[in-house]
Design a protein around this nucleic acid. Sequence first.
DNA 1: TTTTGTGAACGTGTTCACAGCG
DNA 2: CGCTGTGAACACGTTCACAAAA
Lengths: 213, 213
Amino acid sequence: MTRISESTVRRLSHYYRVLEEVAAEGKRMISSHLLAEREGITSAQVRKDLSYFGSFGRRGLGYNVEHLRDEIRAILGLERRWRVAVVGAGHIGSALLAYRGFSEQGFDVVAVYDTDPERVGRDQGGLTVRHASQLSAKDGFEIGVIATPVRAAQDVADALVAAGARGILNFAPRKLRVPAGVALRTVDMTMEFESLSFALTQPRATRRRRARE
Amino acid sequence: MTRISESTVRRLSHYYRVLEEVAAEGKRMISSHLLAEREGITSAQVRKDLSYFGSFGRRGLGYNVEHLRDEIRAILGLERRWRVAVVGAGHIGSALLAYRGFSEQGFDVVAVYDTDPERVGRDQGGLTVRHASQLSAKDGFEIGVIATPVRAAQDVADALVAAGARGILNFAPRKLRVPAGVALRTVDMTMEFESLSFALTQPRATRRRRARE
DNA sequence: TTTTGTGAACGTGTTCACAGCG
DNA sequence: CGCTGTGAACACGTTCACAAAA
């Protein structure tokens, strides 16, 4: 199988969302052109992305909405539910716990940790905050979220890996090291702000997003 | 001037952070090799990134830490302060307002808006939440943050642009349309979770991050 | 005729490798 | 000799363009 690029995976998420909407509207078929709609995706890109995984469409007709949605759900691994541990019960941690969207998509937060004695023992979104030293494989989570201050981030990552995490979502503005076999994604808001600052400062140097077809 | 890729800008942010740390430690010079350190950046990449903007190093010696830091600060547009308006005083909005790191980097939140009557009029991080219909150019912000539910996101984007925003950071999981000349960055946490789900489901299909040199 | 699926062409970002300079 | 700066080579993602199928 050809290796799949991160951009393709992100676009699959996008297609999935569009397909869910379109299915809710009761539409039966959809063309690659309509799936592409918006921001820098061409219909050729859609067909190429999908072709890495199979032939889901019918020439002359397009794709069956529900069928394609189910295929993409399977490809993205969303047929099962994922158990998530959140470390850091501060603002970002609480925001994540409060957001219902994740459980709708199949991500269940099963444990919350912190080191602040003020927070340990308290209730957060239906879960009791536990001390980070309690982090262990017994909780049976696959995904760990790091929502701690920067200085703790690497230690937390190590602890999450030791406790069996196979994927980590990091909100701390620092590059983390994880062993091969552990997937890491970093959301760095500082970087996003700085990227905007750059774009506003040097408008002619900033590459514009590709035009839609 | 050559157009600068988004990846180069993100790496500049990274270099900047490393340089701040290293300067705090009192180190005078740093090599591209040391700047590269960690996750998938090679020393050649560092030199290439910097070469788009000038020749900041000295052959045989490396880069002067403080000088390079100042150059990158200027390149990223961080010599000035930016005024930010946050729309949506829910969990994500409050998390942003509470995070001190942004003001340290030169981003000042000068206004907070919401539509929920429960929230309008309340205090949020030293600012009074105002009704979103009050959004106007008088506030004099350059950057708008969208931290609202999905359904409101496009309208808020339009309102922000009308009120003079030149850059938008969007946390709603939807692609937004903005006019040319307005910079848009989207942080889509759902997509990050789904990307992790994919990586855990199809480990052999996921391209690994490039190894460090 | 419409729209998919895909090899080939293209463009862009990354890495190589070495000349140039300290 | 050490390390930068950079053209050239390379790798990879995107777009083109068309044969195939409905």
